[in-house]
Amino acid sequence: MSYKFDFEFLAERWPDFVAGAWLTIQLTVLAIAFGFVVGTICALVRVYGGPVLRRVVGAYVETIRNTPLLIQIFIVYFGLSSLGLKLSAEVSAVLALTINMGAYTTEIMRAGIESVQRTQLEAADCLGLTRLQTMLHVVLLPAMERVYPSLASQGVLLMLASSITSQISAEELTATANLVQSDTYRSFEVYVIVAVVYLALSALYRLGFWAIGLILFERRRRLGTPL
């Protein structure tokens, strides 16, 4: 093999990679947060809602989980703009990622909510908790604690999947890589670097989820054991 690796372009272009990674973080943190809210609401509807709403949420979840993210992004970006709703690439990216994350979170949170036993609700009733208190302290938080590992890995998967938004020219990490490689013709080196950055980002996200878990769940903090 006579190929010579050449990482010289890094000296000049590293700020581009940092900017790209930063946009990736912004897009995905927003999408994970919004997706979590959407998913939690949909999961509550799926468990406690009326028959019509339940079916609507079911259809949403099945549609999103059985179609590729790439096509969902195209529908949001190109499709909506052709219908007259013009969104920037970044807003479209966050919207599409949120819709996607919401569907997966719905399924994960539903499993958690269904694992809360009936007797827990009865006990909360006996203690005179209001419905809101019951929802928050007896249903949602314990449900979330049980499924937290799945939520965290779904978050990491979403961060990795956000690379697909490069296809609608959201200037995140992968799009930056595409740009730099077309300037420098050092395609292999560029993608090696970006792969390493993504590895670091996934480690960072795991760490972040672990820290949030410690803050949210007292049991983990005090005893260091999951529920």
Partner: peptide, 19 residues
């Protein structure tokens, strides 16, 4: 599992080219 599939695709596409 820690890198996007898209990057794996680019790596093998351009990596094959190098070889």
């Amino acid at each position: 599992q820690g890198t996007p599939l898209l990057i794996v695709l680019f790596l093998s596409y351009f990596g094959l080219g190098i070889l």
